[in-house]
Structure formats: C-alpha cells, structure tokens
C-alpha cells in the first residue's frame, strides 16, 4: 500500500510533470511509483486548493511512514468530495466522525494503536479552518495539551465553503462571505482580533508547528516529513485558496496562494517547541492590493467605490506579520 502505479488519464500515460527537474528536486507526485493516499475521481471543484494540499500532505506523510498512516477527517469539503457514496478516494484507512471532534477521534486512534503496541502506525487528522479554529478548537487544544501523537493538518480556505461560503474565525477582515455581505459602511467581515491558530498551537509548546501554502509544494512536503520525525502533537496549517469561496479564477489557485505569502498576509514559517526555527522569506514583495484584487470577495474594496482605507488597514496587518516573523530577506531589509 505504500505506492502504486498511477495512471494519469489526462495524458494517457504514467508520466507526470516536473520531469525536467533533477530527480531529487521532483515532488513525490512526479514519481510514477508515487504513494497515493487520495485517488483521482473525487468531486472537488476545479482549482481546489484543499484537494491539492491534502494530496501532497498525505502522500508525503505516507512516504515518511512507509505507508503506515491512518487519517481522521472532520466534516467539511474534503470529507464530502472525497467520499461520495458509494465511492471513496481514500487509499489509506480513513475515518470521518463529526465536524468538531477530529482531534479527539485522532487521539482515540493513537491511544488504540499505543495500547495495541503498533508504534509504526501514525495518525494524521485533518480539517478545514471551521473544523480547526471554530467548532473543533476545544478538542484541538485538548489534544495539544495532552501532546497526543497526532499530526493535525488544517486546510485553511478562510471560511465555511462546504455550507456555502460563510464566515469562520479564519475569514480575513473585509472579506465578503454569505454571512458578512459587502454592504453597509463597513462591508465584509469585521476587523476583529483574529484567531491565529499557529501561534495558539505554539503557545501549547507542542513539538512542531508549521504553516505552508499550496504555492510551494516542496516546502509543504518537507514540513510534513519534518513533522513525522517528531512524536507528540504537531500542527500544520496550510493555506488553500478556494476559487468558489474567494471568487478567484480556478487557474490562479497557486498564484493567489503565492501572493498571500509574498504580500505578508499569510506568513510561512515553522516552529519547534514553541520557538520559530525558520521562515520562508518573501522573494518579491507585493502590496496586499495585488493579492486582494484578484478575489471577488474583496471586490468591494476596489472599482467604482474604492475603499483605500480598508486596503490600508489590511496592508498594515500584512506589515505586522512581516515584522513579527522577519519575512523579508535580510539583504532586502537592509536596503529598505
């Protein structure tokens, strides 16, 4: 079950991209004998960032554990599009219980494996941002606090996309959702205090916390592999753009994820035992406007009645991120 020959029907061969790169630089997906946690044929939308992120994350986890992983899934898009009755895309043991309990269910799986002495089998739990920062938050904090041997992955598309794009605590300020419409003097989501789950995870002093985006899949794979080197609770927060919910072009998922990082809106870093150990520096800094303007959920900030004041507020948030994590390349900081 560690790997299988995968037939890529789009090109009618076992071939896949990245072949012009050196062997060691290719992604797991580039290998014809790659591991395969989630099969083709699932029902995700075109350009779904979550499907991409989940496939890379779990395939990397499979490779890191020689295929000995069990996945627990919260309710959400990933769960729904991967298991349309009577089919399933999962090629690994997979359990879906409820929306808010994936961390606790994963604890149960880990406890059972421990009681049975199956030390080689590892547990990955996954949820969207709603299942992580909102309804699953209590269970997640409990799992962190006990330091249960679970890698928890949050696929953050910044809203409740499965139920029709409603606001979550991970929805950025000013974003339009079905429950934060772009009307009135303060259109879109309100400016709150935010709920920065990676930092909250770090505050639990768990062995490993990291963020990633689907714009840098090598980085994502590396972080999954690094996470699997630890025992105990680990947290990986992956930004996964949602073309439907964000109102972005399906073909621009990777681009938008990259702009989120390069604008400073989404800091990419990793931390061990509560201390930041590395950050992904911004290679080409861009103003947040470039990131926002490609998404219809922010359309009310531009166009006929622009809101530069709100854009400026979001820019200041990005700059706070840049300052907190030192996201600019050192030489750029010097020159600026």
């Amino acid at each position: 079950m560690t790997s299988q020959r995968v037939h890529f029907y789009q090109v009618g061969s076992f071939a896949v991209g990245n072949r012009l790169l050196d062997e060691d630089e290719r992604t797991v997906q580039a290998h014809s004998d790659r591991t395969n946690s989630i099969d083709s044929g699932h029902r995700a939308c075109q350009g779904c960032g979550e499907a991409l992120g989940a496939r890379y994350a779990l395939d990397a986890a499979m490779r890191a554990t020689n295929g000995q992983i069990v996945a627990v899934n919260a309710t959400g898009c990933l769960e729904v599009f991967s298991t349309p009755y009577p089919e399933t895309s999962w090629r690994i043991p997979w359990l879906h219980s409820l929306f808010g309990n994936a961390p606790a269910v994963a604890t149960g799986v880990a406890a059972a494996l421990r009681a049975k002495g199956q030390k080689d089998v590892r547990v990955v739990a996954q949820a969207g941002d709603g299942g992580t920062v909102d309804i699953g938050f209590g269970c997640l904090s409990g799992m962190f606090e006990r330091n249960d041997d679970v890698l928890f992955i949050c696929y953050d598309n910044e809203g409740y996309m499965n139920t029709g794009v409603q606001r979550s605590a991970a929805t950025p300020p000013a974003a339009r959702t079905a429950t934060t419409e772009a009307v009135g003097p303060e259109p879109g989501n309100t400016f709150g205090q935010g709920k920065d789950l990676p930092r909250i995870a770090m505050a639990h002093n768990i062995p490993y916390v990291a963020t990633a985006t689907v714009a840098d899949l090598h980085d994502l794979e590396r972080k999954v592999e690094r996470a699997m080197e630890f025992r105990g609770a680990r947290y990986l927060h992956i930004l996964v753009p949602c073309p439907l919910g964000w109102g972005s072009a399906s073909a621009e998922t990777i681009l938008i994820a990259r702009l989120a990082q390069e604008s400073g809106m989404f800091p990419v870093f990793e931390a061990e035992h509560g201390v930041v150990t590395s950050v992904s520096h911004i290679r080409r800094p861009v103003p947040v406007e470039q990131y926002l303007s490609r998404q219809r959920r922010f359309a009310h900030l531009f166009g006929a009645n622009p809101r530069p004041d709100i854009v400026a507020h979001l820019q200041s948030m990005a700059e706070e991120n840049i300052a907190r994590y030192g996201l600019l390349q050192p030489e750029m900081e010097r020159s600026s």
């Binding site: 069990v70 627990v72 359990l95 219980s97 409820l98 808010g100 309990n101 606790a104 269910v105 994963a106 604890t107 149960g108 799986v109 880990a110 406890a111 059972a112 494996l113 009681a115 049975k116 209590g138 269970c139 904090s141 409990g142 606090e145």
Partner: peptide, 18 residues
C-alpha cells in the same frame, strides 16, 4: 477536555479495533 471529546476518543479507539 469534555464529554464530547470523551465519546470522540472512544469512537477513534473503537474504530481502530480497541
């Protein structure tokens, strides 16, 4: 941390054959 978690842990454990 809660009864909700208690039953959820039991669900995960039972599904793993414990």
């Amino acid at each position: 941390e809660s009864e909700f978690a208690a039953m959820s842990v039991a669900i995960g454990a039972s599904a793993t054959g414990a």
